[in-house]
């Protein structure tokens, strides 16, 4: 790659700005978010449910039309409200992994992948993807005969059959258990590196974002609250800890001056001592970070 190409490559590849009035269960919400993404990176969209994350993915794919805005991938404009440009989903180069996977129930695994193959493309990629995602042994099964994790792998592979410029994942790993999630995250990284994908990922899971994302957009009530690397966003700068874990308070018991706090981390409950000051604004159910500094673990409310 010569220098000029490299320069171009470093230009922000995806510029997006979406404005849309959304009607949700909580009433009307004005979504207005813009950002940039570099090619070959993973951007996490993080925030409470109903904040507009899925809508952003759908507008990128062309499944939903913004009221106003702009979407440019490399030098191709897919959507621009000023020039009335709106490329149909079929003509945008996107892969979409839906929350419910949306596998075609009447087609076998291999047929699901073949359905996505453009007529002029060589079926070699199907073989390649089946190999990479360890799907060969499942080729002749129907989706209903697969576990959640297997369905997920098929959905991922199918989304990449067209070799899309961007891959959109709508909380795909939420329904899976922890070990399955780990495996799939590894598959995802492998796919990204092989096909140089730019990925947008809706996720509620902090460890997942730490592992996968180079950039995280924190979205609340349709607005971009913060943006940066996961480490920048989710670690409080005032503490320097060696060990961190994300958990949820399940019980707070007073013990004289201090409080004994039970925090659920994964499937284990960790006891932490805390002062009433530490617990300010926290209650049972609050998400917290447990940070072990030197000897004693203490807890910090998560600023998300």
């Amino acid at each position: 790659m010569d220098q000029w190409q490299e320069l171009q490559y470093l230009e922000p590849m995806i510029r997006w700005h979406f404005k849309k009035r959304l009607h949700s269960a909580q009433g009307i919400m004005e979504l207005d978010v813009q950002s940039l993404a570099l090619p070959g990176t993973i951007t996490g969209l993080f925030g409470p449910s109903g904040s507009g994350k899925t809508s952003i993915l759908r507008m990128m794919a062309g499944l939903m039309t913004p009221d106003e805005g702009h979407l440019q991938v490399d030098d191709t404009v897919w959507y621009d409200s000023n020039s009335q440009k709106n490329t149909s989903p079929q003509h945008r180069s996107v892969g979409f992994v839906f929350q419910d996977y949306a596998l075609f129930p009447h087609l076998k695994v291999q047929e699901n992948l073949l359905f996505g193959l453009p007529k002029e493309d060589s079926p070699k990629i199907i073989d390649e993807l089946m190999q990479m995602m360890d799907l060969h042994s499942l080729a002749d099964r129907y989706p209903r005969q697969l576990s959640g994790g297997q369905q997920q792998r098929v959905a991922l592979a199918r989304a990449i059959v067209r070799k899309p410029r961007i891959l959109l994942l709508d909380e795909p790993l939420a329904a899976l258990d922890a070990s399955m999630r780990q495996t799939l995250q590894d598959y995802l990284i492998r796919l990204k590196d092989t096909y140089n994908l730019t990925i947008f990922l809706v996720s509620h899971d902090l460890p997942e974002l730490f592992k996968l994302a180079q950039q995280v957009c924190v979205i609340e009530q349709g607005q971009l609250i913060r943006q940066g690397s996961p480490a920048e966003l989710f670690s409080s700068e005032t503490v320097s800890g060696r060990y961190r874990a994300q958990g949820t308070i399940v019980q707070i018991r007073p013990t004289g001056v201090l409080f004994l706090v039970d925090v659920l981390v994964g499937s284990e409950v960790v006891n932490v001592l805390a002062t009433s000051e530490d617990l300010l604004g926290l209650q049972v159910g609050s998400p917290v970070l447990i940070i072990s500094k030197a000897f004693n673990p203490f807890i910090v409310g998560m600023n998300v």
Partner: peptide
């Protein structure tokens, strides 16, 4: 599920092909 149609759209298929084949 509406996602079946949408999956077909993001896979580049026309609504006619989606109706017929999915």
């Amino acid at each position: 599920p509406h996602s079946l149609t949408e999956a077909g759209l993001t896979l580049g298929k026309s609504r006619w092909v989606i109706l017929r084949r999915i």
